[in-house]
Write a protein that binds this DNA or RNA. Sequence first.
DNA 1: GAATAAAATGGTATATAATGGAAAATAGTG
DNA 2: CACTATTTTCCATTATATACCATTTTATTC
Lengths: 161, 161
Amino acid sequence: MLKFCGQDCCSVDANGRIKLSPRVISDFAEECGSEVVMHCLPEGAIALYPEKIYLEMRQNEEQAAAQAAASVVFRRSMRRFGAMSKSESISRQGRITLPPTFRKYAALEAGCEVCVVGVEIGVEIWNAERWMAEIDKINEHAMEKGEREMAMDLTTPKPQE
Amino acid sequence: MLKFCGQDCCSVDANGRIKLSPRVISDFAEECGSEVVMHCLPEGAIALYPEKIYLEMRQNEEQAAAQAAASVVFRRSMRRFGAMSKSESISRQGRITLPPTFRKYAALEAGCEVCVVGVEIGVEIWNAERWMAEIDKINEHAMEKGEREMAMDLTTPKPQE
DNA sequence: GAATAAAATGGTATATAATGGAAAATAGTG
DNA sequence: CACTATTTTCCATTATATACCATTTTATTC
């Protein structure tokens, strides 16, 4: 059975918490119990990953100290991942609390509509409006690619099969 | 005997479910029991595949975490397949429930007329109107391609065979 | 350092939606 | 025309989400 897939919509409660769907909770439970890593993405959403996955993302940062001394780009990268990531746990009621700074960053204030989106290795928490824009962009790209493929097929001299 | 072929029409019930035809049910039963993967296509329909088929579609994703950390394009790809796919099962009554977000995406609201279309490796669930438009587009494309092939044949100096 | 206020956390009850099953209606077949 | 197979509709049960409340923790002020 596929993990971390599908979409759910819900809202941020009065105290800045989100109730995750049973599917998401059980996917995390199997991967990492209730301990997860919360990470702010440049796209303006918050990702939740099992810690193991997050460490895989960061594994290529070897000899961090030496590189940090030598490179601004590297320092900025460490700064980004450091400041934008935080360990969090899913409560016994299946809720997760968004830290205030992350809340502002991702436009997930109390009462806000959100979409919890599976991304195969974890889930992402999106402000509903931002998610609509994102999915439109993704679909538009796919449609454009499709049109071009069809046009190409017309001009192909011989049948492809 | 051919699998996943032909077309059936039915309607979405009041709770957003579809009753599959006995033929489709038995095709899935032989391939994968009652566990299937539901996937939203850019064309605006929902595909049902045996999980094995879906995983073949997604097999090329290695070192997913590291790539996700480094690339927006990659994250968007995971987002598309993650958000637009979901494991589902065919119930003992031969029904399958469309998740609310998929319902909206494919214009398959309660009471809506739908066409369940065999696509050899699985089936697709189309809004009836969209299906009509799709089949027109397919035929138009085939006709256009035929015209071009005939024109090409006229200008070809020698017979090809 | 104590008291108060604010915020965060944990839990529960109620309303809503999803699910499973069965009966009635419809269409197909001999 | 009768019988069978299939579909659709309806209802009961279960599960889920939301709002609300109580308790605990943290911060602020005197």
